[in-house]
Design a protein around this nucleic acid. Structure first.
Length: 113
RNA sequence: GGAGCAGGGCAAACGAUCGCCGGGUUUUUUGGACGAUGGCCCGGAGGAAAGUCCGAACACCACAGGACAGGGUGCUCCUUAAUCAGGAGUCGCGGUAACGCGAAGGAAAGUGCAACAGAGAGAAGACCGCCGGAUGGUUCCAUCGUGGGGCCAGGCCGGUAAGGGUGAAACGGUGUGGUAAGAGCGCACCAGUUUCCCGGGUGACCGGGAAAGCUUUGUAAACCCCACCCGGUGUAAGACCAAAUAGGGGAGUGCUUGAGGAUGGUCCGUCCGAGCUCCCGGGUAGGUCGCAAGAGAUAGCGGGUAACCGUUAUCCACAGAUGAAUGAUCGUUGCCCGGUUUUGGGUAAACCCGAAAACGGGAACAGAAUUCGGCUUAUGCCCUGCUCCGGCC
């Protein structure tokens, strides 16, 4: 059984790291999300989520972040290792419910090489 | 049954699985501490957490005292830590009513403004109308002549604010006297203003009476005047710890009589060579604190119309993140909406109201960020009381 934990060390927390990632990383996107990713020096993949105020109000932004975290937590074993990944939400993403969010992210994560 | 007014309540519940944040405790790691890992236990968004519109606590900065400027408040009394808050009232306005709304001091300090319409709009004004006067024409009566009356015509001179018309507003209303016609021009009553007196109320104010001048428009969310109040910035406040690198100050030591470094196990040797060592303060990244138990909640009793106050008891690891936790999936039940079917009542029926069943759909507004007290705005459902209208007895 693979662990489904998702703790603080599995996340990108510093502004510096986000800036570095967006400078160096590769991007894939669809109409709801943008993924920015690059290899890291750690053993695990780490996740960061960016939802700006343009997307919606606080409740909607929180919902998107929780869906993204949940997807990452449940599907880590299927994902590539040694990556820093930033999920950037676009404005369209507030219209998705949980199952559609998961489907959309799954399709998008397949594009990561 | 319909329409409305006021007040209050809830913010789906339970279970399973996988997670997140904080705290306590414990295991392993370690010489020990911190930390990390695993286990167990406890806690983890709102009525508005929102808008950031007021008020405070707290912190730092500024500050002898006063005046001006600027800003705020503006019926009364009370409550509160405090307020542009709240309660109870007064007055005015709206509503049939329950009830609601009001920046509600001063317009007889001064200045300004009052569109359009209208004759005239602030010590107002004569357009129509009404009245008087002189003039012209005509006619009637009387007459020697002079004269008197009626009608018509227009312009001229003057009076008049009662009537018409305009306007949001035209300098009180009704009646009567008066007059050429009119007019607060006089008088009576009514309304209003100011002053004074009496009574009630803590007070705003209310009730009654007298006098005066005879009536003095509106606007102060226009300037202004009066009374009272007011330093500034906000937890990214602010306090503390503090790398690496660069640089500042001081002390010691050294500059061919060579500190220190490289080579090396060490010494000699060889090479490089003007710095090296220590201390101090400032300070960046980063971190810690601020940062969670209080103007606290619930219940009882006492005081008060009430806001609220006093007192007693009980409860509380009542969230503390910082790229920011409080979630996801599944199941059961409940809630709301929709049409369908069955059924009860008001009835002869249409129609209306209620109940049940299965089916389908939905679950609002919204996420703590230093903390409290208010206000405002957003929003789903439920309950209670009251008012008006209609029907039946």
């Amino acid at each position: 059984m693979v662990s489904q934990q998702f703790k603080k060390q599995d996340r990108i927390l510093k502004r510096k790291e986000y800036v570095e990632l967006s400078d160096k990383g590769k991007k894939v996107h669809n109409r709801h999300f943008v993924l920015i990713y690059s290899e890291n020096s750690k053993e695990k993949s780490r996740l960061g989520i960016t939802v700006t105020k343009k997307v919606g109000k606080a409740v909607q932004r929180n919902k998107i972040k929780r869906y993204c975290r949940e997807f990452f937590r449940l599907n880590r074993s299927a994902l590539p290792e040694n990556r820093d990944i930033n999920i950037v939400a676009k404005k369209q993403s507030i219209y998705l419910d949980s199952t559609k969010t998961f489907q959309t992210l799954e399709n998008l994560f397949k594009k990561i090489d």
